[in-house]
């Protein structure tokens, strides 16, 4: 029997650009051309002013650790507990859920406000997930 697999995102027309971006090694956000609001998750209009004139851009990939849990049980399929489920605040403003790599999954190592940078983890030939690691320097 195959190992249980991690939940796989299935892109929609509105989110395809994001998943194309992670596959190309880019974290893509959207900015409103009318009011300059930067937002996530993806949608083809601005949730702040309702303008449909929005642009996709490559984010810096920098952020900080806003909050997290270290999940022990029940563990999601494809995960070995304990593992941290983090919310990262990006330099451009939006927050996103992610995982923290290259860091012990402990309260001591995972300090709130620690600087993070994006990395990319390919799940298969279609989907690459954005994850974060402690920023160098």
């Amino acid at each position: 029997m195959a190992e249980p697999q991690r939940a796989r995102p299935k892109p929609t027309p509105e989110t395809q650009h994001f998943w194309d971006g992670t596959k190309a090694g880019e974290l893509r956000l959207q900015r409103c051309d009318a009011c300059a609001h930067v937002y996530f998750p993806p949608r083809p209009f601005c949730p702040s002013c309702a303008s449909r004139k929005v642009s996709i851009f490559k984010a810096s990939g920098n952020g900080f650790l806003y909050s997290y849990v270290i999940n022990h049980r029940p563990a999601a399929p494809g995960f070995t507990p304990p593992y941290a489920i983090a919310v990262v605040e990006l330099a451009e403003g939006p927050r996103m859920m992610s995982n923290i790599i290259d860091c012990p999954q402990t309260p001591e190592a995972l300090e709130l406000d620690m600087k993070l940078e994006v990395a990319f983890e390919a799940l298969d030939d279609k989907i690459t997930l954005p994850v974060f690691r402690p920023a160098k320097g």
Binding site: R6, A7, R8, P9, K10, P11, T12, T15, W19, F40, P41, V69, N71, R73, P74, A75, A76, P77, G78, F79, Y83, I85, A86, M96, M97, S98, N99, L123, L129
Partner: peptide, 19 residues
């Protein structure tokens, strides 16, 4: 899997309310 939660939360290991 094609909901916003399915794309932008579930892949990172959330699994029920305790997580």
């Amino acid at each position: 899997a094609d909901s916003l939660q399915g794309q932008f939360e579930a892949p990172f290991g959330v699994y029920g309310p305790p997580s």
